[in-house]
């Protein structure tokens, strides 16, 4: 079937079987490999993307279900050369090691900050509790998100 959705602000249409998962559609159909996957049972959260601004596990949403919706992936976090404060926070505070869980963590962080610009440690921990990081032990992720909360104005970073 033809599936059209808005991905990072661009309307994209691709052909896909109804059973294609959103995560596969994004990665393989649209070639945006920043979104990862890590489990079979909707537990790990490495596949998190924003659907209409809300974090969802893209392995548990059909591409067909996302048709007509607004999807934001890690590739859509930065505004050109300007990183989102969340991205910068993760670099400043060592919020990532292998980087595999990072896109999902950052997108959840972005959604959290959009809703609650000044979250405390507990609120941050709760917000990311559906996502597993095997590397960092979370404290630096919490600090990264706090960093972003404290630096809402994006600074110019050229990468």
């Amino acid at each position: 079937m033809q599936i059209t959705m808005t991905v990072n602000g661009k309307e994209m249409t691709r052909e896909a079987e109804p059973r294609v998962l959103l995560v596969h559609h994004i990665r393989e159909g649209l070639g945006l490999t920043g979104t990862h996957w890590g489990c079979d049972t909707s537990n790990c959260g490495t596949c998190v993307v924003l659907m209409d601004g809300q974090p969802v596990k893209a392995c548990t949403v059909l591409a067909a279900m996302a048709a007509g919706h607004d999807i934001r992936t890690v590739e859509g976090l930065a505004n050109g050369a300007t990183l989102d404060p969340v991205q910068q926070g993760f670099m400043e505070e060592h919020g990532l090691q292998c980087g595999f869980c990072t896109p999902g963590m950052m997108l959840t962080a972005r959604a959290l900050l959009d809703k609650n610009p000044d979250p405390d440690e507990t609120e941050i921990r709760e917000a990311i509790s559906g996502q597993i990081c095997r590397c960092t032990g979370y404290a630096t992720i919490v600090r990264s998100i706090r960093w972003a909360a404290e630096h809402p104005a994006t600074e110019e970073v050229s990468v």
């Binding site: 909707s42 959260g45 998190v48 809300q54 974090p55 969802v56 596990k57 548990t60 949403v61 959840t108 709760e126 917000a127 509790s129 559906g130 996502q131």
Partner: peptide, 9 residues
């Protein structure tokens, strides 16, 4: 119930 991301759906 589950986790915040699952609860969104």
């Amino acid at each position: 119930i589950a986790d915040p991301v699952v609860r969104n759906r």
